[in-house]
Amino acid sequence: MRHYGRWVAAFVVLLIAASLIRSVITNDRFEWGVVGDFLFDSRVLDGLVLTLELTVCAMIAGVLIGVLLAIMRLSPNPLVSGASGFYIWLFRGTPVLVQLLFWNFIAALYPTIDLGVPFLAPDLISLNANTVITPFVVALLGLGLNEGAYMAEIVRAGVLSVPEGQTHAAQALGMSRLQTMRRIVLPQAMRVIIPPTGNETISMLKTTSLVSVIAYAELLYASQLIYSENYRTIPLLIVASIWYLVMTTILSIGQYYLERRFGRGHSRELPKTPFQRLKSVLVPGHERPTISAQRSPDSAGGGFA
């Protein structure tokens, strides 16, 4: 028999899978009924909404901070570039969980937040830290500032991927450094920046669960609150996991199409999407042209270096 190794491997995999499935079904302590009861519980769904909100807000903050830091990092001014380097070093060098806790206890460090001119009028506006820094603000500060450090490196790589000649041409036309960055370099850097940003978003979605330690009722903490009342710990952790899986799956699909779109110009013929492949199997002889055959604005970037 040829390929007997494959048959053995397949058999072992099936055996393990079967025993796992059997144990999941027959072990009552999974309490699948409870999972079903709580999957669409309003508290869980509220937590889900908060998780999504936090993911979006933290990513927006992260991208904005990242772009700013990347531009600062590439500045010819050593102080500006150094400040950005310090930020990245600090925020990438400490765990995000520790940062979250720090922001949570910021009121102990600064009981009031004073805004004003240093030395002249130091406390123009004075706010009570305990009222201003809500759990949402803590979560946003913790996740957004941390994400900014990672996004900075992604944006920097994107900016460096744009050929130097583009900058020279823009400068020779009399464009300022900022104009060159905004109008010429950043739009072309997007092809390199977008795909890893998708990864970061997926990763952020899961990282928001850390916020449960500061009692912000996102998906995980909402589930924890329920199981602290009814002691159905495992089923509620499964409920949270199911929702995380649903959301990361949706984001991964979005990521796949995004990468396809921004990968254009690198290879002539794009591989078929799973949907297109399914279609060509189901409807033989009905081949639709792939996107690469059509011309659109974004496909122009890859033509020259």
Binding site: P163, G165, Q166, A169, P187, Q188, A300, G301, F304
Partner: peptide
């Protein structure tokens, strides 16, 4: 190498 802006 021309250096035309590729996205325009």
């Amino acid at each position: 190498h021309f250096n035309l802006f590729g996205h325009m």
